[in-house]
Amino acid sequence: MYLEAENLIGGYGGADILKGCSLGVEKGEIAVIVGPNGAGKSTAMKAMLGMLDIREGSVVLNGEDITRLSPQDRIAKGVAFVPQTANVFTGMSVEENLEMGAFLRTDDFTGTMEEIYTLFPILKEKRRQMAGELSGGQRQQVAVGRALMTQPSVLMLDEPTAGVSPIVMDELFDRILEIRETGVAILMVEQNARQALNIADRGYVLVTGENRFTDTGEALLADPEVRKSFLGG
C-alpha cells in the first residue's frame, strides 16, 4: 500500500497502548479507523505520524521506511495531519492559516490556495477574518485547508467531525470525498462510525490497540458482529 504501518507496538512512554496493530491506505482511497473509546485509534494515527515512541513495527511510505523519521520530516515527505482539537491558528486570519500550512514550500503556492478556496468557497469569503472567530464547521475547513497546502500525498484526519452538527458533518464528508478524487490517500479516525464507514474504501476496527476487523467499509457495515458490537445494532 502507499502508506502502511505494520505491527505497531508502543505508547507514550508508559504502558503500551498499541499492541500490534496494522493499518494502511492507498492513494485515492479513504481508510477509516473506528473502535470504542480507548482503543488507541488516535494513538495509532499519531504513531504513523511519528509523534510517539514505537518499540516495534514499521511505517512505510511509498516503499520507503519512515519509522525513525521525526514528524517534521514525515510532513516534508508529503504526509499532512489535521489534529482533533486546536487545529487552527486562532489569532491569525484564514489566509495566514493557509500560508502557514505552506510554510515548507518554497515555490509559488497561490494556485494551491485558489484550489482550496474552490473546495471551500466560504473560506475565500472570510479569508481576512481571524480563524478563532469562525464557527466550528468553518474552522474544520480551515484546518483541512491548512493541511492541504503542502499538496500532501497522504492526509490524516483525527475525528474531523467531532463536535459539529450532522449537516456540517455530511458537508465535510462530501468535501473529503472530493479530496479523494484528487488522488490523495486519506486516513481518518472517526467516532461517527456508521457515517464514516459509508464513505470508506477500507475500514479498521481497533479494540485495545489491536486490529479486530479489517475490510472494506461496505463489508464492515454489513458484518452483523461489527454492527452488534460497534455500530449499536
Binding site: 514528524p71 517534521q72 510532513i75 516534508a76 495531519f81 489534529p83 486546536a86 487545529n87 487552527v88 491558528f89 486562532t90 502557514m100 500550512g101 510554510f103 515548507l104 491548512r146 503542502t150
Partner: peptide, 9 residues
C-alpha cells in the same frame, strides 16, 4: 499554537 506550528514544519 505551538503543536500546529510544528505540524506545519
Amino acid at each position: 499554537n505551538e503543536d500546529l506550528a510544528l505540524l506545519s514544519g
